[in-house]
Design a protein around this nucleic acid. Structure first.
Lengths: 233, 233
DNA sequence: CGCTATGTTGATCCATATCAATAAGTGTGG
DNA sequence: CCACACTTATTGATATGGATCAACATAGCG
């Protein structure tokens, strides 16, 4: 694996506290690979052979059952994914595909489990990462069960405005609307109508460009809660 | 804390590999407490002061937003809960209440974090526990998004038959129907109707007593998948 | 420039929630 | 141990959120 990636991986919270020795050992047999869009990286049910690190591009986590499919999450650089399956040496519960041209690092799961066994620091970092992931999906579950699809969209827009839009009134949706619909648990047609239904609250849509004219008004409708919408807790 | 509980706690996967020294240290300031039914143990949003271990009884994890409430999980002995909040020293994302007379052990979160920092074995056990919890809620999320309420009920019955019923055709629901409805993400009235809708597949209901007359038939409808329904992976 | 996938809009259908009334449990105190 | 009160469960009627189907518009992309 090219040296130029070392620093980037090193900077991830999961690896930052690792000893040099463990870090080198972890990278044995790792490799970097580029993928075009729409390539399936992981099929749910397969055994966990690699821990993935997304270096550039975007990856969608999704699941299927009985001919239906739902988008579970969209991964942005630089992030690891499917850590839980790796440390448990269990099958993947979600599938993954690239949504755009992406560069990924593949760490042999075997390495991760070996270093995890021998390096206490690494174990602690994994705990932090897993706890974060756990709490993140708890919030998603709460949102799914407690909010209507319109409320989910309104809160999503507020979160995305803060996260990707830097708080500005205008920002771009970071994914296709059909995938956003699936992520929010609704049909694509419904998302179109939901956007219209938010017009009275000052939401304007032009393609993927969103304008929130009156954030206070939208917040009054969305009623965001830190215990669902705050990514940092 | 009475010595008689030591063995029971020790037997939990989370603590079984702990050194005696760490274990003693962990129990400093811990105490055992009995609670009547319907007592709120945890309010979501509060800071994590204790790691809870349920010794007997049952505890419901639930969440609220905007005047609505949903049941997230029901904890059965002997299990710890809210581990993620404890290790992250973060606020609780879910509330907890007893559903029946329950006995709990309260371990100061401070202890858990201290031992976690110093005892590599404990860190590894926490990883396993968190990874398990993470995968468990991923399955729940998949089920919520991919299945209708009738399908969720059918699969729930099959899981419960295997788990609590030991595979027998007859078994008792382990909770009130209103709570089951909330857990499955439906209104109580809908659960009643859903039970009726499963009659053609051989499901009989008498109070909390469930009889599955033709498991193959019910399975053909429910289409259980290990990637959603198998608790052991 | 035209093909194909995505997005929008309208019409309709279906699943599920809500409202209302009754029935059945469950627990409590006399 | 029974009677009352209160909660939970069921059933029916209705409303509604959201899905589906179909037609069309639009936008990417080769």
């Amino acid at each position: 694996m090219p040296e130029r990636y070392h620093d980037e991986i090193r900077r991830l919270p999961l690896f930052s506290d690792l000893s040099d020795e463990s870090f080198i050992s972890l990278l044995q047999g790792a490799y970097v690979q580029n993928f075009p869009p729409q390539i399936t990286l992981i099929d749910e049910g397969d055994t966990s052979d690699f821990l993935y690190i997304l270096v550039s591009g975007a990856v969608e986590m999704f699941s299927t059952w009985n001919g239906r499919e739902t988008s579970m999450d969209t991964i942005r650089p630089v992030t690891t994914f499917i850590l839980a399956a790796t440390v448990k040496d269990a099958v993947y519960l979600m599938s993954a595909r690239t949504v755009e041209k992406s560069r990924l690092i593949l760490l042999p799961s075997e390495n991760v489990r070996r270093i995890f066994e021998t390096d206490a620091t690494f174990a602690k970092c994994i705990v932090t990462e897993l706890a974060q992931g756990y709490r993140s999906i708890v919030k998603t579950s709460k949102e799914l069960k407690l909010r209507t699809s319109l409320e989910r969209l309104a809160n999503y827009l507020l979160r995305e405005q803060a996260r990707g839009g830097g708080g500005a009134a205008e920002f771009d949706l970071p994914m296709e609307k059909r995938r956003l619909a699936s992520y929010l648990g609704m049909a694509p047609e419904n998302l179109s109508r939901a956007f219209k239904a938010l017009q009275p609250y000052g939401v304007e849509v032009a393609g993927s460009r969103i304008t929130i004219n009156d954030e206070a008004d939208l917040r009054a409708f969305a009623k965001p809660s830190p215990l669902i919408d705050d990514a940092s807790i």
